[in-house]
């Protein structure tokens, strides 16, 4: 089933993207084109084929459990618009 205009608005909201109605219309058409292509891919018989999560071969390399980084807090805090007592300050968020 093709996406509806409200799907696009919902997805945009989840990604915190502000889009105009015009952009929403254009995006809706593009997304439905992409989904149409995926529908064609779905038609291929993949029974017996392992699902692929990554396009690269190989497995995750692990690092030893050791403390190797000693962050420079002041340097990091200087990037923030506001900070106090070593904390980053953001607009109040309470659910």
């Amino acid at each position: 089933m093709p996406l509806q205009p409200e799907d696009v608005r919902r997805i945009a909201h989840l990604a915190r993207l502000a889009i105009t109605d015009e952009e929403a219309d254009r995006t809706l058409a593009q997304l439905n084109d992409i989904l149409g292509m995926i529908d064609r891919l779905q038609a291929v018989d993949t029974s017996g084929v392992e699902p692929m999560s990554h396009p690269l071969g190989g497995a995750q390399r692990l690092r030893e459990d050791a403390v190797t980084e000693h962050p420079d807090r002041e340097a990091a805090l200087r990037n923030a618009p506001a900070s106090r007592d070593g904390l980053y300050l953001v607009p109040r968020v309470i659910e």
């Binding site: 459990d65 050791a66 190797t68 980084e69 000693h70 962050p71 980053y88």
Partner: peptide
């Protein structure tokens, strides 16, 4: 663990705020 799951920063409880927040 002594260090974080994806970075080499310490996991010790009770440190100064953000003293153990690495770039990762």
């Amino acid at each position: 663990t002594a260090s974080k799951i994806f970075s080499g920063a310490s996991t010790a409880f009770g440190a100064e705020p953000n003293a153990q927040a690495s770039v990762v």
